[in-house]
Design a protein around this nucleic acid. Structure first.
Length: 495
RNA sequence: CGGGGCGUAGCGCAGCCUGGUAGCGCAUCUGUUUUGGGAACAGAGGGUCGUAGGUUCGAAUCCUAUCGCCCCGACCA
């Protein structure tokens, strides 16, 4: 590891889409900076950070003592995060890339459904929360701040009040409905006892979306539509997240489902019909405007028994054939709510309907724990050597391991692969350090890139390199061109 | 917020009981030899021992206070 430049957080090239400019614009990423003297002619270009002698990847051999669960340990060891204080983390380059990849997927799937991104502030005024009655109700979890004028402020734990305020100030006709606005923003909940790294931090990145509809029926369609977007979102991240009937908690409301990823370290006990784990949304086409289609998906994915301990019903559970009853642990990675007119009544968010009557809008809110997902994915996908990233979120698409740095042929072959992968729009991470093979393999296994190309003089004599799957450990010897073609096919790129 | 534990080099730890030159492993830097699953040798750099008081000729060590972090419980995404 040589600390020379700061990655610019360029979005994952597989995620090119209509929202990328928005994402870039909100990142505030620093430009690459040079910090080395100019005598480094033998080094790689400093503006080319995707090789390990240039990248910032502070991996640890030993596990820091504070980490209890595997995702926390691996995130620290892989140089993804550094704790800043209890429950608050800096995201180092590798972790930041994964976080951004997850964020990109969430953006894409929301916008496919016609949901509109915006950005609300982290710091909010207490007055707004007094209107909804939640300033007192929220309790110690809310971080309260006083500014220099003694105004009461707070670091937002969620955004129903702000979005409702935006809505009521700007929308007054049923003709502007339906409307769904969402953002991805940092939140703060002052947990008594943060733990498990980013899985239960105090500061966390969350997507929260809010739908505004004229009628209950329309709002329930919005609810169903969100359920579909969430199924697609989690599947793209390589996760199976099961929607379970849940408790509405402080948000309030009638209908709510939580999405849980099964993992031994989950905070919730869950009970479900084993048939539910066979369900896949897959790449089926869906018309988000069709009430019937979205309703159909909701029924398909929620008709079987699946509940957390909060809503578990032994009698209903007992109706499932015994061999299909399952109890397990789950990590909550999202929740959708329909809460009707709770906030619109309290805060006066009304529109004129077609007959000129002022009516409160029907609302729902829908959250995805973006930063928490980084930990959840690792919990669901790792082995004793390290992380195993699903292709959809991996920080780099493929690792290139040069077994004999300084060997002319090996160096040239690696440079060629590196250049061609970049030209395809993929992001390789080239381990060009002067390390022994074992050290390079251990690092690659730890940081979990799904594919590794191993290049050494021995193979090159026969015109081959080795392509290895991190997940299966299976290697095959291929010509460099064949290896590139396979990688291209895996990521859907033209070779 | 109740109960427990820990703050000594970037990381992991010993030293504290019984006060007297601040150590070990990994990592880092230099050199040589190495190089297909975390290399070997030689050398080097890096710590006001969390902070503040107190006791003492002398404090990492004893006492008091305070801050931080971790674990169990309650709570929570």
């Amino acid at each position: 590891m040589v600390i020379t430049s700061v990655t610019d957080g360029t979005p994952n090239p597989t995620g090119r889409n209509h929202c990328e400019d928005l994402i870039r614009a909100t990142d505030a990423c620093p430009a690459p900076t040079d910090r080395l003297p100019t005598d480094a002619a033998q080094h790689a270009p400093r503006t080319d950070p995707m090789r390990l002698t240039r990248y910032f990847l502070p991996v640890l051999k030993e596990t820091p003592s504070e980490a209890q669960i595997v995702s926390h340990r691996l995130m620290l060891r892989a140089g993804m995060i550094k704790q800043a204080s209890a429950g608050i983390y800096s995201w180092l380059p590798l972790g930041f890339k994964v976080l951004k990849n997850i964020e990109n997927i969430v953006h894409e799937e929301q916008q496919k459904a016609g949901h509109i991104p915006l950005l609300m502030p982290t710091i909010q005024s207490a007055d707004l929360w007094r209107e909804s009655g939640r300033y007192e109700a929220y309790g110690e979890e809310m971080l309260r701040i006083t500014d220099r004028h003694d105004r009461e402020m707070l670091f937002g734990p969620t955004n129903e009040e702000l979005i409702t305020d935006i809505f009521r100030a700007n929308v007054s006709s049923y003709k502007d409905l339906p409307l769904t606005l969402y953002h991805i923003q940092w939140k703060f909940r002052d947990e008594v006892r943060p733990r498990f790294g980013v899985m239960r931090g105090r500061e966390f990145l969350m997507k929260d979306g809010y739908n505004f509809d004229l009628t209950r029926e329309d709002a329930l369609h919005s609810y169903n539509r969100h359920l579909v977007t969430y199924l697609r979102t989690y599947e793209r991240m390589g996760l199976q997240a099961i929607p379970m009937r849940a408790d509405s908690g402080p948000i309030g409301g009638d209908d709510t489902h939580e999405f849980l990823v099964l993992a031994d370290t989950g905070e919730s006990e869950v009970f479900y019909d084993s048939e539910i784990t066979d369900l896949k949304f897959g790449d089926r086409a869906i018309d988000y405007d069709s009430h019937a289609e979205c309703q159909g998906v909701l029924e398909e994915f929620t008709s079987r028994y699946a509940r957390t301990d909060e809503t578990h019903d032994e009698a209903l559970f007992a109706e499932i054939p015994e061999e299909r009853r399952r109890s397990a642990r789950g990590i909550e990675v999202g929740q959708i709510f329909y809460f009707g007119t709770k906030y619109s009544d309290a805060m006066g968010a009304t529109v004129s309907d077609s007959e000129g009557n002022r009516v409160p809008v029907h609302m729902g809110s829908h959250g995805i724990g973006v930063s928490r997902l980084v930990g959840a994915i690792i919990e669901a996908s790792h082995d004793d050597k390290g992380i195993i990233w699903p292709e959809g979120v991996t920080p780099f698409h493929v690792g290139i391991v040069n077994l004999k740095q300084g060997d002319g042929e090996a160096d040239a072959a690696c440079e060629s692969l590196y250049g061609q992968l970049n030209a395809m729009g993929l992001e390789p991470l080239y381990d060009d350090r002067n390390e022994r093979a074992g050290g390079k393999f251990a690092t690659m296994d730890l940081i979990g890139l799904p594919w590794r190309i191993t290049v050494g003089p021995r193979g090159l004599k026969n015109g081959v390199v080795e392509l290895t799957s991190r997940r299966t450990g299976v290697s095959e010897e291929l010509t460099p061109d064949a290896a590139l073609a396979k990688i291209a096919a895996i990521y859907g790129k033209a070779g």
